[in-house]
Write a protein that binds this DNA or RNA. Structure first.
Lengths: 129, 129
DNA sequence: CTTAAATCTACACTTGACGTCAAGTTAACT
DNA sequence: AGTTAACTTGACGTCAAGTGTAGATTTAAG
């Protein structure tokens, strides 16, 4: 069988605290591969990938609840997913938001670049009076 | 003199509550143009623009504290700004983050589109299975 | 076999970004 | 002048996303 890791290693490798992993588990975001007798959690490499995916989705501005709704899409066989129309609806909403975000982000970038140029000019000006 | 508005009008036009405006004021994000005798706040059009800018920066994932650090760049005469190198550093950091976010967002979009297609296929298949 | 390190559950606390409620003040309308 | 609408501050509540801590248990190491 594949080597499993405990929560400590997983948390270290994923860069999140073990408390956070417990918390995600309560929200249904990830489950340990195994939970033997005494209750220690054992995880496989998939768990790490899941945590990385969760982090990526978070950076895009999704809430943990929203992530919970779609994370299985990335890891489960899609044929097994319930409520496909619901999922589709969620995905379409996310796509629309991502598009809007892209537009705003690009405008923000242009603003930033203009401001940086302005600052550089002002600094140079101040330097040689 | 220019027409000033009270907090009610500002909050309505900006689409935020007056408590939010109070809160932003405490964080140093915006100040009323005037505060006469009894303490009523009076705002000019700049305040509205500021609130809109704040909302835009929030959508990009900046915290209110981070916004407070840069908002003046958009509204004050840059020649008056202290610590230009510091500001420049902040801007460069934001630019780097924006770039990273753009890349991730584009990848996310591609994922979403693939998932949507897959879902559509699965739904069609299930319908006439 | 004992001890130290890791983990468990459960509950409480924190932070950011507000919202709610209440009591009091001021401005606007008639 | 009186009523109503808008505004004030302060205290407290809430929700998401965690973090901290305690006491018990368990596993791993010497």
């Amino acid at each position: 069988m594949l080597p499993l890791m405990q929560i400590g290693e997983l948390s270290e490798r994923a860069g999140v605290s073990h408390r956070t992993i417990h918390y995600y588990e309560r929200l249904g975001l990830l489950q340990p591969a195994e939970r033997e007798g005494a209750g220690y959690r054992y995880y496989d490499e998939m768990a790490l990938k899941r945590l990385e995916k969760i982090a990526a989705l978070k950076r895009l501005g999704l809430s943990l609840d929203e992530i919970a709704m779609v994370i299985d899409l990335y890891f489960k066989d899609a044929t097994g997913i319930e409520g496909k129309e619901k999922v589709l609806e969620i995905l379409r909403g996310q796509l629309a938001r991502a598009d809007a975000q892209l537009v705003e982000l690009q405008a923000f970038k242009r603003d930033l670049e203009a401001n940086i140029e302005r600052m550089q000019y002002l600094i140079a000006e101040a330097r040689q009076g």
